[in-house]
Write a protein that binds this DNA or RNA. Structure first.
Lengths: 136, 136
DNA sequence: GTGATTGCAAATCTTTTGCACTAAA
DNA sequence: TTTAGTGCAAAAGATTTGCAATCAC
């Protein structure tokens, strides 16, 4: 909810090595100034259109992946054939409501994963994802 | 590796309420008599063709879902736009090799998830999935 | 200007569906 | 028989790609 100056987003894109184009700035505004969000490409596209931001679905996909590569977003896979993007890139886990298809952060450091096995030879652990699946 | 009699599969399908058709028996044989497997529909279809089992891809999809609903398989989602099916339905977690797209069971009770939060009101926990993502 | 970015439409990939045909009980 | 299961081809979604037009620097 903190109303940061628009230039903050501009800086944020620049530091990520991404040209602050009209589309990227507009999408960044939608993504990062509305609190934590779990959003699909289709949803973000609809959201953009609702705000009179003209942007193609292809660009939304490109932008989401660029933001993810730049570490501004985190991609979450819980549902075959649908990608969610999480604006919260800190270390945390998720509830997944199977019926509605909604995702929700599991607060703070409640859940803990212990005794994570060693990465097999020649590999490194990128991330440990925990999804608590819920009926309803 | 235990060479069980063919009738075992027949029984297994019957108890699951599934007619033991030629296709289902053949697919069950591929799935359950080769040790633990993590397989996609496309892979199982190719596997079947290699064994001279004529079965359509649509039937492979149907069969995988029927087996999953019957509790014979477990569906795992780690990769957007691709479903894996695990012949090991016991409680366990996975390594995911991001480069090769391979899945591997994390042995036994090594990894532990503790302090799983309560399910939100009106919901129940279906399952807790842990995926350890690896480079390589 | 010049190279990065965008939009559009077409292409691709995985999965599902409709329906006539076939097989199990 | 009678009903479930199968194959095929078409449909449906989600995502990606090719390329000319446009924009940021």
């Amino acid at each position: 909810m903190t109303a940061r100056p628009f230039s903050h987003l501009l800086e944020r894109l620049r530091s990520a090595g991404l040209r602050p184009t009209r589309q990227r700035l507009a999408l960044a505004k939608l993504l990062f100034e509305g609190g934590d969000r779990h959003i699909t490409a289709e949803q973000l596209h609809g959201d953009a259109l609702n705000h009179n931001i003209r942007v193609s679905l292809a660009t939304v996909y490109n932008t989401l992946h660029q933001f993810t590569d730049a570490g501004l977003l985190r991609e979450i896979v819980v549902d075959a054939g649908r990608s969610y993007f999480d604006t919260n890139t800190s270390d945390h886990h998720h509830f997944f409501f199977e019926r509605s298809g909604k995702l929700e952060d599991i607060p703070g450091d409640t859940l803990t994963v212990s005794r994570v096995p060693q990465a097999p030879a020649g590999t490194n652990i990128t991330r440990v994802d925990v999804v608590v699946r819920l009926t309803g």
